[in-house]
Design a protein around this nucleic acid. Sequence first.
DNA 1: AATCTATGTCGCAAACTTACGTCATTTAAT
DNA 2: ATTAAATGACGTAAGTTTGCGACATAGATT
Lengths: 116, 116
Amino acid sequence: MTYAKTAAFTHEQQQLARVAKALAHPARVAIIQFLASKQTCISGDIAAELPLSRTTVSQHLQELKALDLIRGEIDGLTVCYCLNTELLQRVHQQFTAFFIEATTSPACGPADACGC
Amino acid sequence: MTYAKTAAFTHEQQQLARVAKALAHPARVAIIQFLASKQTCISGDIAAELPLSRTTVSQHLQELKALDLIRGEIDGLTVCYCLNTELLQRVHQQFTAFFIEATTSPACGPADACGC
DNA sequence: AATCTATGTCGCAAACTTACGTCATTTAAT
DNA sequence: ATTAAATGACGTAAGTTTGCGACATAGATT
């Protein structure tokens, strides 16, 4: 997505694509769900929950952190990760707007094979 | 040393990731928006609207088609593409469920630096 | 038939992602 | 002070995506 041609698209399109990309790996979906399932920010060994090495999970965490979807606070030896629910809410709205735009279009109906 | 990672990713997580991946490029977001903006299924030269070569656009179209997010009907010389609004609606629901799960978690608040 | 047009397919190069082992750093426990 | 634990950074190998020109194909048009 950071390919050369990216610049030509609207900021909105790039924004949506960037977040979509963050969710484009089951590990990152799983990480977010895991963080959501805990009342407290969980330390980094989310790795124990996932079929991936700690290093790889750490990398996925950094990726989510780079977009600010999650935050990490160092607390002694461990790192406390947590969801940025505010951002996630805004992202949710963006996705919803996109999907509504897409699903309310008067394009071909569900079954008919596109009678244009 | 490898951790004991027995838990593979759920079907649900993979599903979400797969769709997210389809939206993970601004060109594909743009294609969907473009199809939504037309009352009628538009032929393949969506390429004229995008800062990409026809070949590349065709490739993105195939990718969306592989997930059945869009459909293409051959109509003589041209191909009629259209959104699969039914699927998009279901996908929207999936994303919404995910985001609600993520945003209603009692994790760290927006401003406080994660007081765990 | 010869040609034109709209499309998809193929193969390639460059860029990016994924996954993981090893290492350095930081903090806690002995 | 030494050792142990948790973690991110670094390097790197394998795989995937992106982007495109050249080629192939299949209806239209002449």
